[in-house]
Amino acid sequence: MITIIELIKNTFNDNNITEKTTPNDVDEWDSLGHIMLIQTIEEKFKISFEIEELLEFDSVKDIINAINNKIT
């Protein structure tokens, strides 16, 4: 199964993404890129984020933690 980090790498076509990466570090990760990423994640992992949760995502690590909290 594809890991979350691989999914994010594929979404932005950037192999340098790590847990510490933030949207400011990736050119493609603007507001539209962010929307695309969240939609991909929700579809892939069959989860749904609340509005407040989406506003807390400041890094890849935050996204990984939020997904893990929903699927475990």
Binding site: S31, H34, I35, I38, E50, I51, L54, L55
Partner: peptide
């Protein structure tokens, strides 16, 4: 306002990007 209108916001395809 957002808290009271979450469903309508979602139905209208509004996506939060910053606060």
């Amino acid at each position: 306002f957002v808290s009271k209108n979450k469903i309508e916001i979602k139905n209208n395809k509004l996506f939060p990007i910053k606060n």
